[in-house]
């Protein structure tokens, strides 16, 4: 079974993990500590070291989630079509378009619509009033005039606050979780795609004209949830590579592959570090040498843990040859018969 091209295969006993750690760690020291990048979305996206740490820590959500949406083949060259779709994506609820003033003595809500903003997004005051009426059922009266909506209730005034909260959350258009959709021109391929803040693959895939096969988000956990661990590994690989390349510090893909594979070993993305890979090493001494020394040693002695002394750290601590490279080979003499 040819697993890797033979001229690239590595010697048995080579410390690939340590080499990978060094190969990513050294350029890490040269990275700008705090970099933000204007990525079309009018917000700051962390890059460089902060982003690398984010990826390696396997956070639930990156500090700025982005989703790239590509359209199907015939549509992606058409700027108009892409822009139209982008406009329909952004999530807008009543809270974004209106300001609500509660009047407890009159038991009414005075909702003022920002008509300029509403018009730009193609929302009319009639739609808003209709949505409010629908959500209230027959609990009160809804009237609208120019850019004001008045909601009056007959029940106890205590319910007014709850009602205003409910009204604020009514969705008007777009997809929950998405913000600031911008059309980006990919000049190299002569196409346009949409980049928006937030991620919601489940809803995005249902939109007419969206190319499902190319939806991409920098939220690796979301990819894991929708496409499984192998896709998450590929995304992780892509994200780490991108961070390194943008800093002008190219790292061999194999080192990153090793790290991504290690993070995806257990079927779910695991962070590197105390709560993840390093914290689950089988050797007590290796864990104690990393962080929380006393905790590990005390727990191990209570449980009566055994250390097979098969790793590097353990053997350095007790002063033995490490089982790497030439240290891995043992000579056994054949007994004479």
């Amino acid at each position: 079974m040819p697993r890797i091209k033979n001229n690239n295969s590595i010697d048995s006993g080579e410390a690939v993990g340590i080499v990978a750690a060094q190969s990513l760690g050294e350029p890490g020291t040269q990275m700008t500590m705090r970099t933000f990048h204007y990525a079309g979305v009018a917000e700051q996206v962390p890059l460089g070291l902060p982003r690398l740490i984010e990826l390696v820590d396997a956070r639930r959500e990156p500090s700025k989630t982005l989703t790239d949406i590509y359209l199907e083949n015939d549509m992606e060259k058409n700027y108009k079509a892409v822009e139209e779709l982008a406009k329909a994506l952004e999530y807008i609820s009543i809270e974004d378009v209106c300001s609500i003033v509660e009047n407890f003595s009159k038991k009414e809500l005075r909702i003022t619509v920002d008509s300029e903003f509403a018009q730009a997004n193609g929302i009319t005051i009639r739609d808003i009033a209709k949505k409010i009426r629908q959500s209230m059922g027959n609990a009160g009266k809804v009237k609208y005039k120019s850019n004001h909506i008045m909601v009056r209730i007959d029940t106890a005034y205590q319910k007014l606050r709850r009602l205003s909260m409910k009204i604020k959350a009514i969705p008007l258009k777009g997809i929950r979780g998405l913000s600031k959709a911008t059309v980006i021109n990919d000049e190299r391929n002569g196409i346009y795609f949409i980049r928006c803040g937030g991620s919601n693959i489940n809803e995005i895939k249902k939109i007419e004209g969206v190319d499902y096969s190319r939806i991409y988000t920098n939220n690796v956990r979301e990819i894991e949830k929708h496409f499984g661990i192998e896709a998450a590994r590929n995304a992780l690989l892509k994200e780490i590579r991108q961070v390194m390349d943008l800093q002008g510090l190219p790292v061999d893909a194999r080192h990153i592959m090793l790290i991504a594979d290690a993070m995806c070993m257990r079927g779910a993305i695991e962070p590197v570090g105390r709560h993840g890979l390093s914290g689950r090493k089988s050797s007590v001494l290796a864990r104690a040498a990393f962080e929380e020394t006393v905790k590990h040693l005390v727990n191990a002695s209570i449980k009566g843990e055994e250390d097979p002394l098969s790793g590097v750290t353990e053997n350095i601590i007790i002063g033995q040859t490490i089982k790497l490279g030439t240290g891995k080979v043992r000579l056994v003499m054949k007994e004479m018969e």
Binding site: K205, K206, E208, Y212, S213, R214, I215, Y216, I223, H226, F227, G228, E230, A231, N234, A235
Partner: peptide
């Protein structure tokens, strides 16, 4: 629209 079938294996990231 809702009947559109999605196979995750269509996606570029899924081997």
């Amino acid at each position: 629209q809702s009947k559109k079938a999605f196979s995750i294996f269509d996606h570029v990231l899924v081997p």
